[in-house]
Write a protein that binds this DNA or RNA. Structure first.
Ligand code: SF4
Ligand code: SF4
Lengths: 145, 145
DNA sequence: TTTATTTGAGATAAATTACTCCGAAATAGT
DNA sequence: ACTATTTCGGAGTAATTTATCTCAAATAAA
């Protein structure tokens, strides 16, 4: 099951890595992150650029530059990151992907799918990057292969 | 959320259409199905061919030819169709997609994701094409845009 | 002020997925 | 036997996603 694009997954891994650090004040270079997580540097650059544009990260160029959180990671829910890369209709268009869906004109999998979809959404909008990040660090959960 | 490839979705729509018919004995031409569901004829042909090879459908060439169920649709669970086009590891590889996953070396979203994934799997392996097909017909659920 | 370093932005390339096309093989009806 | 129809099988094309490359702009430190 591939629920998310590569961009979303890379973004989450990078953000969780950032959120798990002790020092959240200083800038961390994208090069460093890409090496740590074994993600293509250039591709990751583009992705984190997007997060900077969307106001989740802030950046600084030049030596000792890099990225850090703009808003504190406990103010950013995972779902927000998903919406950046997957679009805002991610949890409304689904399985069959037929246009013009409504509860009045559903496809056969609507009920089944609605459960899964809303369960997922409600879980993902509750959990913040900070929670997951610290958990990642404390329990030594892995973010790279 | 795009959980499935176009192939899987088209396959399911076609199968639910077939399962919803009164006459399950006779062959129905792929051309007819493609027009009814507004799916590219050639693409659907390839997809239904695969289902024939996998023993879900059986086919007949020539005039009055087409496809019909090989095994009765109440013996085919939705999950089986998914496995044909998405592979058998569909419900084991997931969200982060890191290789070498185990409960001992999980990524940060493992628990969260495991819930969603197993909930989905257990629902999809219970429901058969026959159940959904008749429901589709009786409740006039739509299979096309 | 110069230099080294790092993000920003956009073009390009590779890989995957989605879709199309064509001729061969089978089959029912005339 | 002939013809029209339909699936089969594989190749080819288009679109989208994923990844790479290049150079400009900013910035810190020497
Ligand atoms: S009817 Fe429901 S499940 Fe089906 S495509 Fe529309 S929103 Fe998705
Ligand atoms: S640890 Fe679990 S959730 Fe994370 S990629 Fe592996 S199987 Fe998926």
């Amino acid at each position: 099951m591939k629920a998310f694009s590569a961009e979303t997954v890379y973004a989450l891994r990078a953000l969780l890595y950032l959120a798990g650090r002790r020092d959240g004040e200083s800038y961390l270079s994208i090069r460093k992150i890409s090496e740590e997580l074994e993600i293509s540097f250039h591709f990751l650059t583009k992705i984190l650029q997007m997060l900077t544009q969307k106001g989740i990260l802030t950046s600084s160029r030049g030596p000792a530059g890099g990225v850090r959180f703009f808003r504190a990671p406990d103010k950013v829910s995972v779902i927000e990151v998903i919406h950046v890369f997957e679009g805002n209709d991610y949890f409304t268009t689904c399985m069959m992907g037929l246009p013009g869906c409504s509860d009045k004109a559903p496809c056969p999998v609507h009920d089944l799918w609605k459960e899964v979809r809303t369960a997922m959404k409600s879980r993902l909008e509750d959990v913040t990057l900070a929670e997951m990040g610290t958990r990642t660090m404390l329990e030594r959960l892995r973010l790279s292969p």
